[in-house]
Simulated assay, not measured.
Amino acid sequence: MTRSCMLEWLKEPGFFGTHATVGADMSQLMATFFTGLFVIGWIQAKRHRADAHHWMMFGGMIAMVAFFISYYLFRQLGVLAFEGKEGFGGSQALYDYVFIPVLTVHIILVILGLVMAIYMIVLGFRAQQVIDGVRSLRETLLLTTWKKIGVIFGTLTALIIVLFLSRIATADFSMRKFEVYLGLLAVIAIVFSVEMTIQRIWPNGARRHRALGLFTMVVYCVLFVTGTTTYTMLYLLYPGKIG
């Protein structure tokens, strides 16, 4: 399916029976799916079922990252809602003082959630150990150096540049493409900065994983609430002219 066909499909009426488009309904469905996996995975961790926790969280985060990256390419993460009040059928005051603040928090949490997803995937693999088939966290220091970070970031930057050049070689250059790849580099840089900062606070890998896991879980739950709130306001309570 080409990009233009995908865009047209995403603009079709949604499948939940509201005023939403397919794109909006797909976003809400996937957000519910991700959050469900994260909650189940967190419960498994509380019950000390490390293997179930690992695969629930890993699968959910991989799916979330892949979905948001692809969704950004097609719908810009719903930022179209910032373009004007025509997409919102409520009053101007409700739009200015309720909808926009909630949407702003939601988009900030999306960015934070993506950063934490990538970071927690890497941290999960680094902090774990498997002994006789039993997965657990290692209660040891887990530190890295700026030199190692520089090598990894340089390698990833080179790969992203090659990918970007290959894209513009087969299609016209656009600022949209440039912003996407630059944004990807920025997310990676933020992840590495987070690692170098947080390892000073929690040098123990297991403690770091538990503390940040709880924080990330809260972020995803609030993300789901804000996303559901904007969906409800846009497509159930105050539908506007655009989806």
Rank of each mutant, 00 (worst) to 15 (best):
T140V: 14
F74M: 12
G36K: 06
L236W: 10
I40Q: 06
G227A: 10
K85E: 12
H48E: 15
W146I: 09
I69H: 04
H53S: 08
M30G: 00
L214G: 07
A127E: 07
L109Q: 06
T2Q: 08
M56H: 13
T232C: 01
L143Y: 06
I168K: 00
F67A: 04
A93V: 11
N204E: 12
I201C: 03
D132N: 15
K177C: 00
F192V: 09
T226P: 01
V225F: 10
I40K: 11
V39N: 10
L77W: 14
R207H: 13
C5A: 14
L185F: 08
G150W: 04
L114K: 09
A66S: 09
M30R: 04
G78D: 02
L159E: 09
I160E: 10
A211E: 13
G154L: 09
T145L: 01
R126N: 02
N204D: 13
L112N: 01
Y119R: 08
E139F: 05
G59H: 02
A81G: 02
I198K: 07
F38D: 07
R75L: 04
T232S: 11
I131V: 15
S193A: 12
L114E: 07
F68M: 14
Y231F: 15
G90S: 04
V105A: 12
E179V: 15
K241W: 00
A169S: 15
L163R: 11
K148C: 04
G78Q: 08
F99T: 00
H209S: 10
A127D: 02
V191F: 08
A31Y: 03
W42M: 13
R210G: 05
R167T: 15
A189V: 02
M56I: 01
T229I: 13
L37Y: 03
G205I: 04
T155P: 02
G41Q: 10
D25A: 05
T216N: 12
A66T: 03
A158Q: 01
V105W: 07
G113Q: 06
V110T: 08
V102H: 03
M56N: 10
M217V: 07
A45T: 08
L141I: 10
T104S: 11
L141D: 15
G113D: 05
Q76D: 12
V180A: 13
T18S: 09
S166E: 15
Y95M: 00
V151W: 10
I121A: 06
I108W: 03
F33A: 15
E139C: 01
G154D: 07
T144L: 06
T157N: 12
A93C: 00
L109Y: 02
V218G: 01
H19T: 03
F15R: 01
I100D: 07
Y235H: 10
S70D: 11
F16T: 03
V22I: 04
G154R: 08
T2P: 11
D51L: 09
F34M: 10
I107N: 05
A206M: 06
M120W: 00
F34A: 12
Y181W: 14
P239K: 05
T197Q: 11
I111W: 02
F215A: 14
G183S: 08
G36L: 11
R135T: 12
R167Q: 14
N204R: 04
E86N: 10
M196G: 05
G89A: 05
A158M: 14
L137K: 11
